[in-house]
C-alpha cells in the first residue's frame, strides 16, 4: 500500500460534505451542500472526478440507487465515507490545524469559525 498523503482542499470539503449528509449523499445533494456552505461554485465534473479518486483510494464507497422519472430514468449514485476516509480526513484536518495554530493573521475569521 502506498503511504497515504494528506488530502487536498477539495477532497477535505467533499469528505466533510459526505459526513454531513450521511446516507443522503449523492451528486446533487453533495454539490448543493458544498455550494451553500462555502459559496463556491462546484462543477459536476470536478465533483465526480474527486469522488472517483477518493473511491480509488478506498476513502469512500458508492452504490447505485433507484432510477427516477425526474432524472430521466437514470439512477442516483449514493456515496458514503469509509472508516479509512474518516481517519485520513481527521489526519489532514489535524495537520492543517497545527499549521494554523497561533497564527494571528485573521482574528475575525478565527472568531467566526469558533462561533460556528
Amino acid at each position: 500500500m502506498r503511504k497515504a498523503k494528506n488530502l487536498g482542499e477539495f477532497e477535505i470539503i467533499v469528505l466533510a460534505a459526505l459526513i454531513r449528509l450521511g446516507t443522503d449523499a449523492y451528486g446533487v445533494s453533495i454539490r448543493q451542500e458544498i455550494e451553500s456552505r462555502t459559496g463556491r461554485a462546484v462543477s459536476v465534473g470536478a465533483l465526480y472526478s474527486t469522488l472517483s479518486r477518493l473511491e480509488e483510494k478506498n476513502y469512500v464507497a458508492s452504490r447505485m440507487g433507484d432510477a427516477t422519472a425526474e432524472r430521466g430514468g437514470r439512477a442516483k449514485r449514493h456515496y458514503i465515507i469509509k472508516a479509512e476516509g474518516e481517519a485520513q480526513l481527521e489526519k489532514s484536518v489535524f495537520a492543517l490545524g497545527k499549521m494554523l495554530k497561533g497564527i494571528k493573521a485573521w482574528p475575525e475569521t478565527l472568531k467566526t469559525l469558533a462561533r460556528l
Binding site: V44, E70, R71, G72, R74, A75
Partner: peptide, 23 residues
C-alpha cells in the same frame, strides 16, 4: 458533450444529477 466526456461508470449518475437539478 457531457455524455461523450463522462466515463462509463459515472455517466448515468452524472447526467441524471444534472437533469434533476435542471428540472
Amino acid at each position: 458533450l457531457l455524455a461523450v466526456s463522462a466515463g462509463a461508470t459515472d455517466k448515468a449518475a452524472l447526467i441524471g444529477d444534472l437533469e434533476e437539478e435542471f428540472g
